[in-house]
Design a binder for these strands. Structure first.
Length: 128
RNA sequence: CGAGCAGGUGAAACAGCAGCAUGUACAGUGCCGAAAGGCCGUGCAUGAGGAAAGUCCGGGCUUCACAGGGCGAGGGUAGCUGCUAACGGCAGCCGAAGGCGACUUUAGGGAAAGUGCAACAGAAAGAUACCGCCGUCUUUGACGGUAAGGAUGGAACGGCGAGGUAAGAGCUCACCAGCGUGCGGGGAACCGCACGGCUAUGUAAACCCUACCCGAAGCAACACCGGAAAGGGACCGCUACCGUUGGCCCGACGGGUCCCGCUUAGGUGGCUUGAACCCUUUGGCGACAAAGGGUCUAGAAAGAUUGCUGUUCACGACAGAACUCGGCUUACACGCCUGGUCGCGUG
RNA sequence: GGGGGCGUAACUCAGUUGGUAGAGUGUCACACUGGCAGUGUGGAAGUCGUGAGUUCGAGUCUCAUCGUCUCCA
């Protein structure tokens, strides 16, 4: 199942206002049901994250972390992934467990196998 | 060897796996569509910067306005000569300031066209006598002369010395500074010399004057496709039926087709071959120009070179194209190259 | 991507031709009251976002820079 892109401002605002969310210093995930019969994904990095270089990097890391889960998402959801300041300093391998935990918590995976609770990875420090 | 000056250049490298965008080739009688075309797969090629940034200037391009010329308003620039498509940019030179020097910095036209302002202080801020000095008289003062001295200030009829005088003063003279005229040099800014009257404060990044330049807006421009709801025009019909107005009749409106058209969701183009880049030669002090040869080098639309692993080193700064080009300004870890200068030592 | 504005006391704002920076609210002290509120009197509080330049002298003029708001689909 190919995930569509979410690009309308009204859809983002609907996700923030009505959706369920899960938060972590590296990533915030919002999810809300839509009536399209397919799922859509939006990734945002606000100006608070940094300049264009930092925001592009944050988006790329989150895209890379999301790729393994792309085919396992339930249909009919709008998902919004929000980058934070610490995301710029992280690696995609550190983002992925956070995303997995969030997807489980929000019930977005098709085969909801019972996983052992994932421990939060440490937030990277600035000098790394 | 040390210190310092100027210019140029690079912007970590390599390998493996996975992945993204564009172009191209091939394949499936695959999927969507009336069609044009789009989507899906595999291979190959290409894929951010010196500042891509700030948006401070100047162009290309597009739309609107506009016959041509003049005057005015508003804005900009300001030594001279050149370079350039153009510029407020660049090069060389001149003047001024700084440095032992290599060299650096410089909004650097006009204040005798006019107006304004110069707080406080000071007698007085281009016009003047407060104290002082000198002279005269009707002598606790008045009048006249005087800018050498005091005091105020950022700035006070140029500075300093000598002569001169009642005391003084470019009144006279030497030197310096400034202004004007003449001669000589230079392409010009300007420089040098001579003479003259001895006078004019500062501010034009205050108004202003002089010379030159400028139509406005910007790719979210604009063009095309498409065209919801309302509206306008033309034609058809003016008959039947229905509704509204009306007590009723007549009449009016609501009808159909075509065209125009504001705004709006969406799509396509604009979108990358260009004052382009690289090399060589020639001309020029240089900016740059000319000739010859070679190359095609991002073009997205929520927005593309990234994730993970490994190796090496100098251990990686500032930072991400969005129509495009030439500059300026600002940010920045380090490395390399070239040419001058000063000091010390040795020959 | 491209236009336009605004930064002054803790807060909200004034500040005409450059010449000692003000107002209201708040805050502090004192007085009126037995105490509080309220009123009155007096006081403190400012690198004028930052850095250069012009000028004798910049909140004001010029340039650069930082932050913030807003408009254009």
């Amino acid at each position: 199942m190919k995930i569509q892109k979410l690009n309308q401002n009204k859809d983002f605002r609907r996700a923030y206002a009505k959706g369920k969310y899960a938060a972590h210093p590296l990533l915030v995930t919002y999810a809300v049901k839509n009536r399209l019969g397919e799922s859509r994904l939006g990734i945002t990095a606000s100006k608070k994250v940094g300049g264009a270089v930092q925001r592009n990097r944050a988006r790329r890391i989150i895209t890379a972390a999301f790729r393994p889960w792309e085919n396992k998402i339930k249909n009919g959801y709008d998902i919004v992934l929000v980058a934070r300041t610490a995301t710029t300093l992280a690696r995609s391998t550190q983002i992925e467990p956070v995303l997995k935990k969030h997807l489980h918590k929000l019930g977005l995976l098709e085969h909801d196998e019972k996983t052992s609770s994932v421990s939060d990875p440490a937030v990277p420090q600035a000098h790394l």
